[in-house]
Amino acid sequence: MPTLRNVGLLAGAALLVIQATSHAQVASPPVPPPPAQGPAPAPLYDVTQLPAVRGVVRQFTQTPRGDIDGLILADGTEVKTPPHLSSEIAYAIRPGNTVIVHGLRAAALPLVRAISITDEATKITISDDGPGPGRRLDAAGGAPTVSSGRVRMPLHGPEGQVDGALLEDGTVLRLPPDAYRAVTELKPGQTVFAEGPVLTTAFGRVVEVSAMGTTPDRLEPIVPLPPAPPGPPPPRP
């Protein structure tokens, strides 16, 4: 039979437990949920006012580092995109899908400098808002090898300069800047042999060309043209 002393001890212990529990609940309030983020800001300019091109994506083009820098449409139109949009394009655009491209058309080339691209299947629109944080495919090609094939079409830089070629098997050849001497070997239907590191990604195969020729035993190094000589000095007053 419990004594009065034991009952008093049990009651005191229960009171301590209740106080400790109450203190713990006061000291650890629930964490409030993070504030909800507002909607993304609307773009400053209305890109739909720019000329639009609609077509089916045949394939991507890539830089020698593996970044997507454009699309080739089924009708042969070349769409140029900045490399900093590489990750967004890889996520949103699918070869075989129809896209609507708003941008600037070249006057004498089937070339469009894209400002926005909408994939009609994924319903995603990608707009060029300038360089920002993004993932780069910092891959590198292996040892230089010789690749060959027939040229389907020359490829261009954003200003319309020839900077490579697309072969009929889908391989992309990329030339170093100002390598204008090699342009004559990149005509459609021309068979070329190109030496350089080869990079293969999920989006295709790209060769960083260091030498090129029409036969494998006559490969000439691709070097930039020397700078133009300075002009005559201005006349003296």
Rank of each mutant, 00 (worst) to 15 (best):
K80M: 13
S22N: 05
I126F: 00
P82Q: 10
G70F: 06
I124D: 00
A40W: 01
I89F: 08
P82G: 05
G130V: 10
G38V: 04
K123M: 13
V112G: 05
L71W: 08
F60V: 12
I115A: 06
V57H: 02
P34M: 12
L85T: 01
Q37H: 00
I117H: 02
P64E: 12
I124W: 05
G96H: 08
A27L: 13
A27S: 14
I93M: 15
G66R: 00
P29T: 01
A36W: 00
E78Y: 14
I100R: 12
I68Y: 03
R94Q: 13
T63Q: 07
V26S: 07
P51C: 03
P35K: 15
T61P: 05
P30V: 12
I115H: 05
E120G: 00
I117Q: 01
P43F: 04
P51D: 04
G103P: 15
V79I: 15
T61V: 14
T98N: 04
I124Y: 03
G130P: 12
D129V: 05
P39A: 14
A74F: 03
A108P: 00
V57M: 09
E78K: 11
D119Y: 10
V99F: 07
I72Q: 09
P30D: 10
P32A: 14
P41S: 04
Q49N: 07
L104N: 14
Q49Y: 03
D69L: 02
I72F: 01
R105A: 14
P29L: 01
L44Y: 10
T81P: 07
L73W: 04
T77N: 09
I93V: 15
I68Q: 08
P83H: 09
L111H: 13
A52F: 00
K80I: 15
D67L: 13
A107H: 12
Y91I: 04
A121S: 11
D75Y: 04
F60A: 05
G66I: 01
H23N: 07
T118A: 11
G76W: 06
S22Q: 07
V26R: 14
P82C: 05
S127M: 12
T77Y: 02
V101D: 09
P83R: 12
I100G: 00
S116E: 14
T118V: 09
Q37R: 08
V112T: 09
S28W: 03
A40I: 08
V47K: 00
